[in-house]
Simulated assay, not measured.
Amino acid sequence: MILTLNKVETSVLLLHMATMRNSVKKGFKKAYGSKEGKELLKRFDEVKEQLEKEIGALTQEEVEKVSLEDRTDFHFNVNEFDMIYTFVMWYKPELQKLLKAAGKIKEEDQEQLNTLQGVIDQMEEVKLQYA
């Protein structure tokens, strides 16, 4: 399955996947047991590494010139795609609840929520194409 993301979407998704890795690890272990949880975490890390390669390859000059039109195709198998989709579908509402509970949602936080929603929207389009 091919998921096309711009650099901002890739960066925001990577940031939140990296931030939540330990929580995801605990969740997998609790929900699926030690062995299957390790396999799922390995898949999660493989997806995260693909995103890291794309962002890590940018030079400082490229970062300064990044455009929303600069898009990258990520080729994921069905399991990897489902992993990301499940993660963002769970994570975005949880993050939104947390930010609301903390008080007014700041503009920067809202931009990240909007970006995560954009990733979800694109993933839903991909799911329709492969259905």
Results as ranks from 00 to 15, higher is better:
Gln112Tyr: 06
Lys25Tyr: 06
Ile2Ser: 09
His75Arg: 13
Ala18Cys: 04
Ser67Asp: 12
Val8Arg: 15
Phe87Met: 00
Val24Pro: 02
Tyr85Arg: 12
Val126Ala: 05
Ala101Gln: 13
Glu108Gln: 12
Asp109Asn: 12
Asn22Lys: 14
Asp45Met: 11
Met123Phe: 07
Ser11Ile: 06
Ala101Lys: 03
Phe76Ala: 05
Val24Ala: 09
Glu107Phe: 09
Glu39Arg: 15
Leu99Asp: 01
His75Phe: 07
Glu52Phe: 11
Glu49Pro: 02
Ser11Gly: 14
Gly56Ile: 09
Asp70Gln: 15
Val12His: 11
Met1Gln: 05
Arg43Val: 11
Glu39Val: 09
Gly27His: 00
Val47Phe: 00
Ser11Cys: 07
Phe28Trp: 03
Leu98Phe: 13
Leu15Asn: 12
Ile105Tyr: 04
Asp70Leu: 09
Tyr32Lys: 12
Val63Asn: 12
Met20Pro: 01
Leu99Ala: 10
Met20Ser: 15
Glu125Leu: 04
Ala18Ile: 07
Trp90Ser: 08
Gly27Ala: 06
Glu54Asp: 06
Ser23Tyr: 14
Lys53Val: 01
Arg71Asn: 04
Val78His: 13
Val78Ser: 03
Ser23Trp: 15
Thr19Gln: 13
Lys97Pro: 00
Phe44Ile: 03
Lys25Asn: 09
Met123Gly: 01
Thr10Ala: 15
Ala18Thr: 08
Gln129Ile: 01
Val78Trp: 04
Lys106Arg: 15
Met83Phe: 08
Lys38Arg: 05
Gln112Gly: 02
Phe81Arg: 13
Thr10Gly: 13
Lys92Val: 10
Arg21Ser: 06
Glu64Gln: 15
Lys127Ser: 01
Ala102Asp: 14
Leu3Asn: 09
Glu46His: 14
Glu46Met: 04
Glu52Gly: 08
Gln122His: 09
Leu116Asn: 02
Arg43Ala: 11
Glu125Gly: 03
Gln112Phe: 05
Met17Lys: 06
Thr4Cys: 04
Gln60His: 12
Leu116Met: 10
Lys29Arg: 10
Asn79Ser: 09
Gly118Lys: 05
